[in-house]
Amino acid sequence: MRTKTLITSMGLFAMLCVVIFGLGVKGLALDETFRRFVLAALWVCTWFAAVVGLNRAAASDRNKSFFSALMLLPFDPALVYLVRLVSTLVWLVITQALLVLLAVPMLKFDFFSQPLMLAVALMADVGILALGVLLASATGRLRGGEALLTIALLPVTVPVFLAATGATEALHTGSGAAEAWPYVLLLGVCDAMFLALGLLLFGKLNEG
């Protein structure tokens, strides 16, 4: 039952993103500018989907006092962090997949012409959520924490976005994979760094 509601809401979220974007650009010709707009929209929607996913997880924790119970258990906090990260990542990846599947026919989105985009999207998701899970564990407990998470997450995840949009631009302007590699490398560095920070700091942030 819960899974069914979840899939429906994810699908609706993705649909909504595509429809609103399509309405906003419906007069544009199908040219280079339009293609770049669609790619930009993918990243905007991904980011907001991540925030929605993190807040949804935090809300269900709050309702069931699940989180405080989890922290009381004799698990390593790093393990709790990883589990939370993977579960949110699955949510985000499914939402993103739905988004892309809708955008390919509706917005003439050429996502699959560049296989490296799959890796870029996944790495960007990991980077955003690595810090998102960390920060959401603190903001989730607060009244009005949803808005706070948005404020807190945006500045620190920007390196990921710079790399992701840079790679997207390089891949889709014809300069090919060679130009995109430095950005993919930057994404990898960001992922590694943010994951390490998350693993180290998650326990500290939620101690006591």
């Binding site: 390196p159 920070l197 700091l201 942030l205």
Partner: peptide, 8 residues
């Protein structure tokens, strides 16, 4: 924690 996140 956020101070540390400013570092990168």
């Amino acid at each position: 924690v956020y101070g540390i996140l400013l570092g990168p």
